[in-house]
Protein backbone atom coordinates (compact mmCIF):
# COMPACT_ATOMS: atom_id res chain seq x y z
CA UNK A 1 0.00 0.00 0.00
CA UNK A 2 2.73 2.37 1.00
CA UNK A 3 4.62 1.95 -2.21
CA UNK A 4 1.50 2.58 -4.28
CA UNK A 5 0.86 5.75 -2.36
CA UNK A 6 4.41 6.77 -2.92
CA UNK A 7 4.34 6.24 -6.65
CA UNK A 8 1.05 8.09 -6.92
CA UNK A 9 2.52 10.96 -4.98
CA UNK A 10 5.63 10.88 -7.12
CA UNK A 11 3.53 10.90 -10.26
CA UNK A 12 1.56 13.84 -8.96
CA UNK A 13 4.73 15.69 -8.25
CA UNK A 14 6.15 14.97 -11.66
CA UNK A 15 2.93 16.14 -13.22
CA UNK A 16 2.92 19.33 -11.25
CA UNK A 17 6.56 20.10 -11.89
CA UNK A 18 6.37 23.35 -13.80
CA UNK A 19 8.20 23.55 -17.07
CA UNK A 20 8.44 27.27 -17.48
CA UNK A 21 9.34 27.61 -21.13
CA UNK A 22 6.60 25.32 -22.36
CA UNK A 23 4.04 27.01 -20.14
CA UNK A 24 4.91 30.36 -21.63
CA UNK A 25 4.62 28.99 -25.14
CA UNK A 26 1.31 27.36 -24.25
CA UNK A 27 -0.28 30.53 -22.95
CA UNK A 28 1.22 32.57 -25.75
CA UNK A 29 -0.32 30.30 -28.34
CA UNK A 30 -3.71 30.18 -26.65
CA UNK A 31 -3.80 33.95 -26.26
CA UNK A 32 -2.73 34.37 -29.88
CA UNK A 33 -5.59 32.16 -31.01
CA UNK A 34 -7.93 33.97 -28.63
CA UNK A 35 -7.04 37.25 -30.30
CA UNK A 36 -7.56 35.68 -33.71
CA UNK A 37 -10.99 34.44 -32.62
CA UNK A 38 -12.16 37.73 -31.19
CA UNK A 39 -10.40 40.33 -33.28
CA UNK A 40 -12.58 40.30 -36.42
CA UNK A 41 -15.72 40.84 -34.35
CA UNK A 42 -14.01 43.48 -32.24
CA UNK A 43 -12.72 45.30 -35.29
CA UNK A 44 -16.18 45.34 -36.86
CA UNK A 45 -17.48 46.83 -33.61
CA UNK A 46 -14.80 49.54 -33.62
CA UNK A 47 -15.41 50.33 -37.26
CA UNK A 48 -19.15 50.62 -36.73
CA UNK A 49 -18.71 53.51 -34.29
CA UNK A 50 -16.41 55.53 -36.55
CA UNK A 51 -17.27 58.58 -38.60
CA UNK A 52 -17.31 58.12 -42.34
CA UNK A 53 -13.88 59.63 -43.08
CA UNK A 54 -12.19 57.95 -40.16
CA UNK A 55 -13.05 54.51 -41.51
CA UNK A 56 -10.88 55.10 -44.54
CA UNK A 57 -7.77 56.44 -42.82
CA UNK A 58 -4.41 54.71 -43.11
CA UNK A 59 -2.98 53.89 -40.61
CA UNK A 60 -6.27 52.89 -39.04
CA UNK A 61 -7.24 54.36 -35.67
CA UNK A 62 -7.72 51.85 -32.85
CA UNK A 63 -10.30 53.84 -30.94
CA UNK A 64 -12.98 55.90 -32.70
CA UNK A 65 -12.03 59.55 -32.36
CA UNK A 66 -15.59 60.82 -32.36
CA UNK A 67 -17.78 57.79 -31.52
CA UNK A 68 -21.04 57.97 -33.42
CA UNK A 69 -24.19 55.88 -33.80
CA UNK A 70 -24.76 57.24 -37.28
CA UNK A 71 -24.07 53.90 -38.97
CA UNK A 72 -26.69 52.10 -36.90
CA UNK A 73 -29.28 54.85 -37.24
CA UNK A 74 -28.82 55.03 -40.96
CA UNK A 75 -28.97 51.27 -41.38
CA UNK A 76 -32.13 50.83 -39.33
CA UNK A 77 -33.99 54.04 -40.19
CA UNK A 78 -32.97 55.07 -43.69
CA UNK A 79 -32.47 51.60 -45.11
CA UNK A 80 -34.83 48.66 -44.71
CA UNK A 81 -32.50 46.77 -42.40
CA UNK A 82 -34.99 46.94 -39.53
CA UNK A 83 -37.46 44.98 -41.64
CA UNK A 84 -34.83 42.31 -42.26
CA UNK A 85 -34.19 42.04 -38.54
CA UNK A 86 -37.90 41.57 -37.83
CA UNK A 87 -38.15 39.00 -40.63
CA UNK A 88 -35.16 37.10 -39.31
CA UNK A 89 -36.49 37.12 -35.75
CA UNK A 90 -39.91 35.89 -36.87
CA UNK A 91 -38.38 33.08 -38.93
CA UNK A 92 -35.87 32.04 -36.28
CA UNK A 93 -38.39 31.96 -33.42
CA UNK A 94 -40.92 30.01 -35.48
CA UNK A 95 -38.24 27.51 -36.41
CA UNK A 96 -37.29 27.11 -32.75
CA UNK A 97 -40.92 26.43 -31.76
CA UNK A 98 -41.59 24.02 -34.59
CA UNK A 99 -38.35 22.08 -34.53
CA UNK A 100 -38.02 21.82 -30.77
CA UNK A 101 -41.56 20.47 -30.31
CA UNK A 102 -41.18 17.96 -33.15
CA UNK A 103 -37.57 17.14 -32.33
CA UNK A 104 -38.10 16.49 -28.63
CA UNK A 105 -41.11 14.29 -29.32
CA UNK A 106 -39.22 12.49 -32.07
CA UNK A 107 -36.16 11.93 -29.92
CA UNK A 108 -38.35 10.56 -27.14
CA UNK A 109 -40.24 8.27 -29.50
CA UNK A 110 -37.11 6.89 -31.10
CA UNK A 111 -35.44 6.34 -27.75
CA UNK A 112 -38.40 4.61 -26.08
CA UNK A 113 -40.16 2.88 -28.90
CA UNK A 114 -38.40 0.22 -30.89
CA UNK A 115 -40.44 -1.13 -33.73
CA UNK A 116 -39.31 -3.07 -36.73
CA UNK A 117 -37.07 -0.74 -38.69
CA UNK A 118 -36.82 1.92 -36.01
CA UNK A 119 -33.05 1.93 -36.43
CA UNK A 120 -33.52 2.39 -40.15
CA UNK A 121 -35.84 5.33 -39.51
CA UNK A 122 -33.27 6.91 -37.22
CA UNK A 123 -30.56 6.28 -39.80
CA UNK A 124 -32.73 7.87 -42.49
CA UNK A 125 -33.36 10.91 -40.31
CA UNK A 126 -29.66 11.34 -39.62
CA UNK A 127 -28.59 10.76 -43.20
CA UNK A 128 -31.02 13.40 -44.43
CA UNK A 129 -28.61 15.73 -42.69
CA UNK A 130 -25.87 14.65 -45.08
CA UNK A 131 -27.69 15.94 -48.14
CA UNK A 132 -25.77 19.00 -49.32
CA UNK A 133 -28.19 21.95 -49.19
CA UNK A 134 -27.10 23.14 -52.62
CA UNK A 135 -28.51 19.90 -54.08
CA UNK A 136 -31.97 20.91 -52.85
CA UNK A 137 -31.89 24.51 -54.02
CA UNK A 138 -33.41 23.86 -57.46
CA UNK A 139 -36.26 21.56 -56.33
CA UNK A 140 -37.09 23.76 -53.34
CA UNK A 141 -37.24 26.73 -55.63
CA UNK A 142 -39.59 24.92 -58.02
CA UNK A 143 -41.84 23.65 -55.23
CA UNK A 144 -42.09 27.04 -53.56
CA UNK A 145 -42.94 28.69 -56.88
CA UNK A 146 -45.59 26.03 -57.46
CA UNK A 147 -47.24 26.67 -54.09
CA UNK A 148 -46.85 30.43 -54.33
CA UNK A 149 -44.57 30.48 -51.31
CA UNK A 150 -41.65 32.17 -52.98
CA UNK A 151 -40.63 35.37 -51.19
CA UNK A 152 -42.76 34.35 -48.19
CA UNK A 153 -41.31 33.77 -44.73
CA UNK A 154 -43.22 30.49 -44.39
CA UNK A 155 -41.06 28.86 -47.04
CA UNK A 156 -37.94 29.72 -45.03
CA UNK A 157 -39.49 28.41 -41.80
CA UNK A 158 -40.28 24.99 -43.28
CA UNK A 159 -36.87 24.73 -44.91
CA UNK A 160 -34.87 25.66 -41.83
CA UNK A 161 -36.95 23.48 -39.50
CA UNK A 162 -36.20 20.55 -41.75
CA UNK A 163 -32.49 21.21 -41.72
CA UNK A 164 -32.16 21.49 -37.94
CA UNK A 165 -34.64 18.75 -37.01
CA UNK A 166 -32.32 15.74 -37.47
CA UNK A 167 -29.77 17.33 -35.19
CA UNK A 168 -32.29 17.97 -32.41
CA UNK A 169 -33.68 14.44 -32.72
CA UNK A 170 -30.14 13.09 -32.45
CA UNK A 171 -29.26 15.11 -29.34
CA UNK A 172 -32.61 14.43 -27.64
CA UNK A 173 -32.48 10.73 -28.35
CA UNK A 174 -29.17 10.59 -26.52
CA UNK A 175 -30.66 12.42 -23.56
CA UNK A 176 -33.75 10.21 -23.32
CA UNK A 177 -31.69 7.05 -23.61
CA UNK A 178 -29.52 8.17 -20.72
CA UNK A 179 -32.53 8.32 -18.39
CA UNK A 180 -32.72 5.11 -16.32
CA UNK A 181 -35.69 2.80 -16.87
CA UNK A 182 -36.52 2.96 -13.14
CA UNK A 183 -37.65 6.53 -13.53
CA UNK A 184 -40.21 5.62 -16.17
CA UNK A 185 -41.40 2.69 -14.08
CA UNK A 186 -41.71 4.78 -10.93
CA UNK A 187 -43.85 7.36 -12.70
CA UNK A 188 -45.97 4.63 -14.30
CA UNK A 189 -46.52 2.87 -10.99
CA UNK A 190 -47.71 6.14 -9.51
CA UNK A 191 -50.41 6.09 -12.17
CA UNK A 192 -49.16 8.81 -14.49
CA UNK A 193 -50.00 8.42 -18.16
CA UNK A 194 -47.13 8.27 -20.61
CA UNK A 195 -47.89 11.79 -21.75
CA UNK A 196 -47.84 13.09 -18.19
CA UNK A 197 -44.63 11.20 -17.47
CA UNK A 198 -43.11 12.74 -20.55
CA UNK A 199 -44.29 16.24 -19.71
CA UNK A 200 -43.64 16.46 -15.99
CA UNK A 201 -40.89 13.94 -15.31
CA UNK A 202 -38.75 13.60 -18.42
CA UNK A 203 -38.80 17.09 -19.91
CA UNK A 204 -37.35 18.80 -16.83
CA UNK A 205 -34.46 16.32 -16.79
CA UNK A 206 -33.60 16.83 -20.43
CA UNK A 207 -33.67 20.61 -20.20
CA UNK A 208 -29.98 21.10 -21.15
CA UNK A 209 -30.59 19.20 -24.37
CA UNK A 210 -33.70 21.21 -25.15
CA UNK A 211 -31.84 24.46 -24.57
CA UNK A 212 -28.95 23.36 -26.75
CA UNK A 213 -31.36 22.37 -29.51
CA UNK A 214 -33.29 25.62 -29.25
CA UNK A 215 -30.12 27.71 -29.42
CA UNK A 216 -28.77 25.84 -32.40
CA UNK A 217 -32.13 26.07 -34.15
CA UNK A 218 -32.22 29.81 -33.56
CA UNK A 219 -28.65 30.47 -34.64
CA UNK A 220 -28.77 28.24 -37.69
CA UNK A 221 -31.92 29.97 -38.96
CA UNK A 222 -30.58 33.40 -38.09
CA UNK A 223 -27.35 32.64 -39.96
CA UNK A 224 -28.69 30.78 -42.98
CA UNK A 225 -27.78 32.28 -46.32
CA UNK A 226 -28.17 29.94 -49.31
CA UNK A 227 -31.92 29.34 -49.12
CA UNK A 228 -32.62 32.88 -48.04
CA UNK A 229 -30.77 33.92 -51.18
CA UNK A 230 -32.75 31.69 -53.53
CA UNK A 231 -36.22 31.66 -51.95
CA UNK A 232 -36.63 35.37 -51.33
CA UNK A 233 -36.91 38.24 -53.75
CA UNK A 234 -37.91 41.41 -51.97
CA UNK A 235 -40.38 41.06 -49.10
CA UNK A 236 -39.00 38.15 -47.13
CA UNK A 237 -35.33 39.11 -47.06
CA UNK A 238 -33.43 38.21 -43.91
CA UNK A 239 -30.43 39.76 -42.18
CA UNK A 240 -27.61 37.90 -44.03
CA UNK A 241 -29.18 38.76 -47.38
CA UNK A 242 -29.51 42.38 -46.30
CA UNK A 243 -25.82 42.58 -45.44
CA UNK A 244 -24.71 41.01 -48.69
CA UNK A 245 -27.02 43.41 -50.55
CA UNK A 246 -25.24 46.35 -48.87
CA UNK A 247 -22.01 44.77 -49.86
CA UNK A 248 -23.05 44.38 -53.50
CA UNK A 249 -24.83 47.65 -54.09
CA UNK A 250 -22.87 50.35 -52.33
CA UNK A 251 -19.71 49.44 -50.52
CA UNK A 252 -20.22 51.73 -47.54
CA UNK A 253 -18.15 49.95 -44.92
CA UNK A 254 -19.61 51.96 -42.05
CA UNK A 255 -23.09 50.76 -42.93
CA UNK A 256 -21.87 47.19 -43.40
CA UNK A 257 -20.07 47.27 -40.05
CA UNK A 258 -23.16 48.55 -38.23
CA UNK A 259 -25.40 45.89 -39.80
CA UNK A 260 -22.85 43.17 -39.12
CA UNK A 261 -22.75 44.07 -35.44
CA UNK A 262 -26.56 43.91 -35.32
CA UNK A 263 -26.39 40.48 -36.96
CA UNK A 264 -23.89 39.24 -34.37
CA UNK A 265 -25.81 40.42 -31.29
CA UNK A 266 -27.88 37.22 -30.84
CA UNK A 267 -24.71 35.15 -31.01
CA UNK A 268 -23.07 37.14 -28.25
CA UNK A 269 -26.20 37.07 -26.08
CA UNK A 270 -26.41 33.31 -26.44
CA UNK A 271 -22.72 32.81 -25.70
CA UNK A 272 -22.99 34.84 -22.52
CA UNK A 273 -26.08 33.14 -21.17
CA UNK A 274 -26.09 29.62 -22.49
CA UNK A 275 -22.48 28.61 -23.06
CA UNK A 276 -22.84 25.92 -20.37
CA UNK A 277 -25.84 24.34 -22.06
CA UNK A 278 -24.33 24.37 -25.52
CA UNK A 279 -21.19 22.57 -24.48
CA UNK A 280 -22.92 19.95 -22.34
CA UNK A 281 -25.70 19.46 -24.90
CA UNK A 282 -23.42 18.92 -27.86
CA UNK A 283 -20.94 16.73 -26.10
CA UNK A 284 -23.65 14.54 -24.57
CA UNK A 285 -25.11 13.95 -28.01
CA UNK A 286 -21.77 13.50 -29.74
CA UNK A 287 -20.23 11.06 -27.29
CA UNK A 288 -23.31 8.84 -27.27
CA UNK A 289 -22.90 7.86 -30.88
Amino acid sequence: MDSIDNTAAAAKQMRKKPIKKQRVFLYAFLIFYLILSLFPVLWMGITSFKEHQEIYTVPPTWVPEKPTLRNYVESLRDRPFGVYVVNSLYVALSVVALSVVCGVLGGYGLARFSFRGSRAVFGAILSSRLVPPIALVVPFNLIMIKFGLIDRLESLIVTYAFFILPFIVWVMKGFFEAIPQDLYDAARVDGASKFKTFLFVLLPITRPGIFAGAILAFLSSWNEFLFALTLTRKNAMTVPIGIVRYFDEYIDWGLIAGSTVIAIIPAIVFILFFQRYIVSGITAGAVKS
Binding site: L34, S37, P40, V41, F225, I268
Partner: peptide, 23 residues
Amino acid sequence: FVACFLLPWMVPPVTAAIMWKWM
Protein backbone atom coordinates in the same frame (compact mmCIF):
# COMPACT_ATOMS: atom_id res chain seq x y z
CA PHE B 1 -10.76 30.50 -23.28
CA VAL B 2 -13.50 28.05 -24.26
CA ALA B 3 -16.17 30.79 -24.30
CA CYS B 4 -14.02 33.05 -26.47
CA PHE B 5 -13.03 30.26 -28.84
CA LEU B 6 -16.73 29.55 -29.37
CA LEU B 7 -17.48 33.00 -30.75
CA PRO B 8 -16.47 32.53 -34.43
CA TRP B 9 -18.88 29.64 -34.75
CA MET B 10 -21.83 31.71 -33.56
CA VAL B 11 -21.56 34.63 -35.96
CA PRO B 12 -23.33 34.28 -39.30
CA PRO B 13 -20.95 32.85 -41.94
CA VAL B 14 -21.79 35.73 -44.22
CA THR B 15 -20.63 38.26 -41.65
CA ALA B 16 -17.52 36.19 -40.94
CA ALA B 17 -16.58 36.36 -44.61
CA ILE B 18 -17.32 40.08 -44.78
CA MET B 19 -15.32 40.83 -41.63
CA TRP B 20 -12.24 39.11 -42.98
CA LYS B 21 -12.71 40.72 -46.34
CA TRP B 22 -12.79 44.13 -44.67
CA MET B 23 -9.66 43.38 -42.65
